[in-house]
């Protein structure tokens, strides 16, 4: 059992480092671009990575609070990505009803 727990701890640490590295790579894509959709996708990937970091941190520390954090962050990241995607494709985000 002790070796299993040590293995899980090691796996979580390695995963945290990998996801942090992925955040940096996505940050490069945000800075360089070259188009707006590239940056939006990169920002969405960063948000997903931060969700992953929150869940891994919850596993590492055993505090359920970080699972709640990850849920809220995932929802807000989804909404922001959808909003920017609609802005890029249509220009208007929130509109009135189409005239019948």
């Amino acid at each position: 059992m002790a070796t299993e727990a040590a293995f899980v701890t090691l796996a979580i640490d390695v995963a945290l480092i990998v996801v942090a590295g992925l955040c940096l790579l996505c940050g490069y894509r945000v800075v360089v671009g070259p188009t707006v959709p590239d940056r939006v996708v990169a920002l969405d990937a960063i948000a997903t990575n931060v969700v992953a970091i929150a869940v891994l941190f919850a596993l590492k520390t055993g505090r359920g609070l970080f699972v709640t954090v990850s849920l809220v962050l995932a929802i807000i990241a989804f909404l922001s990505t959808v909003t920017v995607a609609k802005y890029v494709t249509e220009g208007d985000i929130i509109t009135r009803r189409d005239e019948p």
Binding site: T83, K86, I94, R96, R97
Partner: peptide, 9 residues
């Protein structure tokens, strides 16, 4: 807001 974005006001 998700309803507003997906549908309309």
């Amino acid at each position: 807001t998700l309803v507003y974005v997906a549908y309309d006001l």
